[in-house]
Design a protein around this nucleic acid. Structure first.
Length: 372
DNA sequence: CACCCGTGGAC
DNA sequence: TGTCCAAGGGT
């Protein structure tokens, strides 16, 4: 959980996770779906899949791996995690190199090289390996990480209080050369700008047959259509509202609806337009979700349908419940959604609330006139 | 080696 | 408001 994720973000997830799956055995018996739901909102969802795979691997093996090289073979465990478990849990004398250690080491040895380059990474591991305290490798590794996380911070290092400042070559250099500072280490490497994607998102709500008219759109029994994303790639295997990527030049309302209609037709095996009465279809707004490598602009629309009975039946028959589900409002709010999809849902909900308020005002005014 | 894969807190 | 990046790993 802590891979590329800060402790404060993780703690609650960790508690819930460990309460539900306290042992490797119990986790190995869980389903991918359960694991996804528990992980929802934490990001880097492959970690959840790998953790489940890893647990199964270990059960298959029959014993928990106790050395870094054995741990390294488990799914989702790389050099860092293998070293951390081996040293902290089993006292193996091996180093760990995470983002914090990279900062500490690159300053201690005044390493000007690109910290992402493999040769430099190799050097970090070698240098840290020379320093590990053989009697307390776990404590040493945690101390190195803690030093990097606190005193030896990225922008404001507390060199005056640092217990190893007398060994720090970056500090020495900075005192000799005014143009060079401790914070120049590790070298900053420019990263690629995120690409821009555009998506049409349609929150499809199936109204009850009895519920005619917009006044019923807040009915708790109304169903939302959710789709399971492909098992590979971005947000793999997670649930979302029907979405289609559109090219940058075709983000206008007409093109978006055209693409969405095509998608829904294929998805539900029916022609939505012909087999339903559209109670409401309206643009809700757009939301820009920032991933680490993608800037995704989502154009959100709300569509409330009243399907003909036979079309509803077709939907049920045509739907593969492992890829497509109709879920009521309560369940949507309690289920595991990605943070972007949750944002979209809240947007739509606010939109409906506003609509309902406007409508009740209209009703009140009408009633007022009637009484006169 | 370059790129893919989320999220939110800090500054 | 924008930028950075965290207890990284896989392909």
């Amino acid at each position: 959980m802590l891979q590329q994720t800060r402790v404060p973000v993780v703690v609650d997830y960790y508690s819930r996770w460990m309460a539900r799956w306290p042992t490797v055995h119990s986790l190995a018996a869980a389903t991918q779906e359960e694991v996804n739901e528990m992980w929802a909102g934490l990001g880097y969802y492959r970690r959840a899949r790998f953790l489940l795979e890893g647990a199964k691997q270990i059960i298959e093996k029959g014993e928990f791996p106790r050395t870094a090289s054995e741990l390294r073979r488990v799914r989702g465990i790389g050099d860092y995690t293998a070293g951390a478990i081996a040293s902290i849990a089993f006292n193996e004398v091996v180093p760990v190199v995470d983002g914090n250690v990279v900062r500490v080491i690159s300053r201690l040895y005044a390493i000007p090289d690109n910290p992402k380059e493999s040769s430099t990474v190799k050097r970090f591991w070698e240098l840290t390996g020379e320093l590990v305290d053989p009697s307390r490798p776990g404590d040493f590794n945690q101390a190195m990480m803690e030093l990097g996380a606190t005193l030896c911070s990225k922008t404001k290092p507390g060199c005056s209080q640092c217990p190893v400042s007398s060994h720090c070559q970056a500090l020495t250099l900075s005192s000799q050369n005014t143009s060079l500072q401790v914070t120049d280490f590790p070298r900053v490497v420019p990263k690629a700008k995120p690409r821009c994607d555009f998506a049409a998102v349609c929150v499809v709500q199936i109204a009850h047959a009895l519920d005619q008219g917009v006044t019923c759109t807040m009915d708790m029994d109304n169903l939302f259509l959710l789709i399971k994303r492909p098992e590979e790639g971005l947000l793999a295997g997670l649930w979302e509202f029907p979405s289609v990527l559109v090219s940058e030049g075709k983000t206008d309302a007409m093109n978006r609806r055209k693409e969405m209609d095509k998608y829904l037709r294929q998805l539900l095996s029916i022609d939505v337009k012909r087999r339903s009465s559209v109670i409401l279809r309206e643009d809700v707004g757009q939301y820009v979700h920032i991933f680490s490598h993608i800037r995704l602009t989502m154009f959100v629309e709300l569509m409330i349908l009243n399907l003909e009975d036979d079309a509803k039946q077709l939907c049920k028959e045509g739907q593969d419940s492992t890829k497509l589900r109709f879920i009521d409002e309560n369940a949507v709010e309690s289920m595991g959604l990605t943070s972007g999809i949750r944002k979209v849902y809240n947007m739509v909900k606010a939109f409906k609330d506003k609509r309902l308020k406007e409508q009740s005002q209209v009703t009140t005014r009408k009633r007022g006139r009637g009484l006169k």
